[in-house]
Amino acid sequence: MQVAKKYMPLSSLIVGVDLYPIKPIPGTLSIIGDITTEKMRHDLKTTLKTWKADLVLHDGAPNVGQNWLHDAYQQNLLVLHSFKLACEFLQKGGCFVTKAFRSKDYFNLEYIFRKLFRKVDATKPLASRYESAEIYVVCQGYICPDKVDPEFFSAKHVFQELDLEPNTKLNILRPEKTRSKAEGYVEGATTLFNQVPISRFFQAANFVEVLQEASEVILMAFIFENTNLD
């Protein structure tokens, strides 16, 4: 909201939504609520009255800590909810900017974005770590059709090909017989790219597990200079 207030014209109406109270920002309005509920939709209609938005920004995130596929799905499910609100409250030609996670279901989201916006671009700001799964999607030129297919906002339809069960690791030695117990990813991890030093590979009791977890094995070289030539 601070950024919107800084860059939007002085006469702009800026409305922020959060699950928790937002510290007052002069010249803005805030609503406490959940964007996945019908109550929030009603509160926004009450606040905006007959006005339509030029821009909708979404930077929400769910609680994470389960298996990666589940957490990525929950993030992109929030994106779908924010997209639904954007399509209701944006004026024709408006823009929608959202954070999303690079995962299988992202491409389903991109597909429906392109159905309702003239231009859709995904970008990764320099401030975001390369290894991080998050990207930002910029949708420009809202088409604002008279009627939108409800299936565009249905998680069951949009994400119908997803398997939300935790993925088991591939057993390199006996893939057809043995399946590892499904586990969540490392606590606090929000990356799809995992670098492992080669020293861990050599020191591991089970080198196969190291290979299963690694996206890249890092080889580090050390050069020692002998300055005493005597």
Rank of each mutant, 00 (worst) to 15 (best):
Met1Ile: 11
Met1Leu: 12
Val3Met: 09
Tyr7Met: 07
Tyr7Ala: 07
Tyr7Glu: 11
Pro9Arg: 12
Ser11Thr: 10
Val15His: 04
Val15Lys: 04
Val15Leu: 06
Val17Asn: 00
Ile25Ser: 03
Ile32Glu: 15
Ile32Gly: 05
Ile35Trp: 02
Thr36Asn: 10
Thr36Ile: 06
Glu38Cys: 05
Glu38Arg: 13
Met40Asn: 11
His42Asp: 09
Asp43Ile: 01
Lys45Met: 13
Lys49Glu: 12
Trp51Leu: 14
Lys52Cys: 06
Asp54Met: 04
Asp54Gly: 03
Asp54Arg: 05
Leu55Arg: 04
His58Gly: 01
Asp59Asn: 10
Gly60Pro: 04
Gly60Ser: 10
Gly65Glu: 10
Gln66Met: 06
Leu69Tyr: 06
Ala72Tyr: 07
Tyr73Gln: 10
Tyr73Pro: 05
Gln74Arg: 15
Leu78Ile: 09
Val79Glu: 00
Ser82Pro: 05
Glu88Pro: 01
Lys92Gln: 15
Tyr106Pro: 00
Asn108Pro: 00
Leu109Thr: 01
Glu110Met: 02
Tyr111Lys: 15
Tyr111His: 13
Leu116Phe: 03
Phe117Thr: 01
Ala122Arg: 13
Thr123Trp: 05
Lys124Trp: 09
Ser128Phe: 04
Ser128Ile: 09
Ser128Cys: 15
Glu131Asn: 12
Ser132Gln: 07
Ala133Trp: 00
Ala133Asp: 02
Lys147Phe: 11
Val148Ile: 15
Pro150Tyr: 05
Asp163Leu: 04
Leu164Met: 10
Glu165Gly: 00
Lys169Gly: 01
Asn171Gly: 02
Asn171Pro: 01
Ile172Arg: 14
Arg174Asp: 08
Thr178Ala: 09
Glu183Ser: 13
Gly184Ala: 15
Val186Phe: 11
Thr191Pro: 00
Asn194Gln: 13
Gln195Glu: 10
Val196Cys: 06
Pro197Asn: 06
Ser199Met: 07
Phe201Gln: 10
Phe202Gly: 03
Ala204Gln: 07
Ala204Gly: 04
Phe207Tyr: 05
Val210Asn: 08
Leu211Lys: 09
Glu213Tyr: 12
Glu213Trp: 11
Ala221Cys: 05
Asn228Phe: 13
